[in-house]
């Protein structure tokens, strides 16, 4: 059963990921991304991380990709693009190098830690699983104690991004007259 769920979810993730790269239409690509995110959420549930799965769906599928779609629709770039045109010529060879590099690193990591693949861990502490809310309690405890600094710094980073966007997109006083003509 566990294997079955894993295979289905992994297929969802892979099909979605391939779709994001290969679909010509940006809206279809964004929908493929949703499929991938759902697959990951299923994998989280299969590993008893219910809270992470819910957050994955609420934040990524429910907010971020919706905003992607929003921007795609508002900017009107929702037509299929001609992929043979490339504004940045260095982009594709560079992408190839990076992807080969990442693949190599992952393969090396797997080969290096081959023993760990077959080792059986003690798994999740099943005693805490009896309590339905233990998952959330443990997560929040580690976020707000051990990793509180990283957590707060991340939120400050997001805040800076928001303020920066507002500052950069705001028209200066009197400038809108020239721009709108």
């Amino acid at each position: 059963m566990g294997l079955f769920v894993f295979v289905c979810a992994a297929a969802m993730v892979l099909v979605g990921a391939v779709g994001v790269v290969t679909r010509n239409n940006p809206v279809h690509a964004a929908l493929s991304l949703v499929l991938t995110l759902f697959g990951i959420a299923v994998l989280f549930v299969a590993n008893n991380a219910h809270f992470l799965a819910a957050v994955q769906v609420i934040v990524y599928a429910g907010a971020i990709v919706v905003l992607f779609l929003f921007v795609i629709m508002l900017l009107g770039v929702d037509q299929a693009e001609d992929l043979s045109l490339e504004p940045l010529t260095v982009q594709r060879p560079l992408a190839l190098v990076v992807s080969i590099g990442v693949t190599g690193v992952i393969i090396a990591a797997v080969l290096k830690s081959q023993d760990a693949l077959f080792a059986r861990g003690t798994g999740i502490d099943s005693a805490t699983l009896q309590d339905a809310d233990a998952n959330i309690r443990q997560l929040s405890r580690s976020i707000f104690t051990d990793y509180v600094f990283a957590f707060e710094v991340t939120s400050v980073l997001l805040l800076i991004a928001v303020v920066g966007t507002v500052v950069m997109s705001r028209r200066q006083h009197g400038q809108h007259v020239e721009e709108s003509v």
Binding site: V34, F51, A53, V57, I58, N135
Partner: peptide
């Protein structure tokens, strides 16, 4: 009766936008 309960409802309502 999933352990995430009410978060499930929030997740579904955010999916309904699609």
């Amino acid at each position: 009766d999933p352990p995430i309960g009410i978060l499930f409802a929030l997740a579904i309502s955010s999916i309904a936008i699609y």
